[in-house]
Design a protein around this nucleic acid. Structure first.
Lengths: 119, 119
DNA sequence: CGGTATCCTCACGGATACTG
DNA sequence: CAGTATCCGTGAGGATACCG
């Protein structure tokens, strides 16, 4: 790497991650991909997320074109969320990350304990 | 989804992501995977990260067993960082995410503008 | 060069209450 | 049910200064 330039892609990757790279966005996409369609409170229970953060996260994801929102004007109201095509394509790397996480949690905890003992 | 239980994997995924799922960790792993070995200040310039955050991020990644640190006691000192095997395996999903980010930045910005106009 | 220490700010995010 | 509004605490993270 030439030492006076930045990692050429990191800046752009950073931009995208700062939009859809937070933990709640990951988990919402992960959940919607798994279950297809979920209502607001189903997502809320599913993720253990606060009402406020879910509302904010869903609005961002809708704005960025990853999530589609369908409002059924019944009483009580019913709102369903699904992934858009872009959202589904985002699911692939998100899922890969989730699987890696599940597979490596133990390894990380072991490494962490080992590290802490040497200190 | 049964409506009274949580997304079964989300809790564990959340745990791992809360450790290695921050943006700086992603970018450090992404950079180290691409360039192999980098010194502290090379990483710093490469990522546009503050000295403090890079120091903290590297220490976490070393602790979690994703990054290996080699100290050369010369004058001036020289410290090189590489990925461990776990770190390299982490690179796969991180890279997938990075590539997705690069491919979809435009699409996201377009969706965002469209959304903002309807409001 | 490769850090640590300190200070300071602001955004993340929970708790609670209220509404159509 | 599906939000919005408000308040508030904590922690992420930059800026700066200093050190071996």
């Amino acid at each position: 790497m030439p030492d006076n330039i930045q990692c050429p892609d990191c800046k752009r990757i950073n931009e995208v991650l700062s939009r859809v790279g937070d933990r709640w966005s990951f988990l919402v996409v992960f959940s919607l991909a798994r279950y297809g369609t979920l209502r607001f409170n189903e997502l809320k229970r599913s993720l253990g997320i606060s009402q406020r953060m879910l509302s904010l996260t869903l609005k961002q994801l809708e704005r960025d074109g990853l999530v589609h929102r369908t409002y059924h004007p019944s009483i009580p109201p019913k709102v369903e969320y699904t992934l858009t095509e872009t959202g589904r394509s985002f699911h692939e790397p998100v899922n890969a990350l989730g699987l890696w996480a599940l597979e490596n949690l133990d390894k990380i905890e072991t490494a962490r304990r080992a590290y802490d003992e040497t200190v």
